[in-house]
Design a protein around this nucleic acid. Structure first.
Length: 279
DNA sequence: CTTGTGCCCTGCCAGC
DNA sequence: TGCTGGCAGGGCACAA
């Protein structure tokens, strides 16, 4: 599942491969994945053909492609989405959702088995609601003590009662964190995933902020975490899986204390933790 | 405002 | 051995 480090790795790979190269053809194979705001309803290819990508950015877990006419393609990879660049001499892969062919012969395949992902196209200058709703991500300069405080206190100033793991997954508070890094950051901060926000001390937030930043930086450096589907643009797996302390390690010994790693369900999602290292 | 639930989708695998 | 029900989960619509 692509989270911040995986999406960042993909974005960096895409920049190297396709920036500034004219798009010769584009097609949408899974029409239900595209949501176009009413204002612009052209054929899919007409947004791309003859143009080129001038910028590719990451916002939270979203990819933001800017074309030279300043219109923008927003992509979310959901659980199983991939962007793969090849020399175009291979047949279409299964589960192809959209495809972009460049003048130099390169081909960008957008693949998504479960189709939890999403594409949106916005005209130049228009606001992108799904991105404006996002909180700052742990690697952005806007990520401040106040950001972490918003985990514990709602807009009304009332103390939240949800589990910390669930709060970390709330993209409107902090963006880019998914199941893997929520568990990993909480482990590093010594906080159990099921601990309610109203039972977290303010000074524990500092450790959590450091853990989030640290785990994200390390994972980006490793090219992300490949548990099942995620692949880099060059189809190689991410190496951070070797550094996971708790995620997907139920029953295995904690690397610090050798207690057995436990798994629990919070908000319908698996959370992993060490019962001895995390309080 | 806050929190919880179910839905989307398909590969995988435990259990029969 | 072969089938199958349930599980996995990011984001969102909707309900309470």
């Amino acid at each position: 599942m692509p989270e911040l480090p995986e999406v960042e790795t993909i974005v960096r790979g895409l920049r190297e491969q396709i920036l500034g190269i004219e798009i010769q053809a584009a097609r949408l194979l899974k029409a239900d994945m595209l949501r176009i705001p009413r204002r612009a309803s052209r054929k899919f290819k007409d947004f791309f053909v003859g143009r080129n990508f001038v910028a590719i950015d990451r916002v939270g877990k979203f990819l933001l492609f800017t074309l030279n006419d300043r219109s923008r393609l927003v992509a979310h990879l959901g659980m199983t989405g991939k962007f793969v660049v090849t020399n175009g001499r291979f047949p279409d892969p299964p589960y192809l959702c959209s495809q972009y062919i460049f003048r130099n012969g390169q081909r960008l395949d957008h693949i998504d088995v479960r189709r939890f992902g999403r594409l949106e196209i916005y005209p130049s200058g228009s606001k992108i609601p799904i991105i404006e709703r996002l909180g700052p991500d742990p690697l952005s300069p806007e990520f401040k003590p106040q950001t972490l405080r918003s985990l514990l206190f709602g807009r009304s100033g009332r103390r939240r009662r949800r589990a910390m793991h669930t709060l970390l997954l709330d993209q409107s508070l902090i963006s880019g964190v998914g199941n893997i890094y929520a568990s990993e950051a909480l482990f590093r901060a010594g906080i159990r995933p099921q601990r309610r926000a109203d039972r977290v001390r303010l000074r524990e937030l500092g450790a959590l902020a450091d853990s989030l930043r640290q785990v994200m930086r390390e994972a980006v450096a490793a090219g992300g975490t490949t548990v099942s589907d995620y692949r880099r643009v060059d189809d190689k797996p991410g190496r951070f899986v070797a550094s996971l302390r708790v995620y997907d390690r139920e029953g295995q010994p904690c690397r610090d204390c050798e207690a057995k790693i436990k798994r629990t369900i919070l908000g319908g999602r698996s959370a992993y933790y060490c019962p001895k290292c995390q309080k």
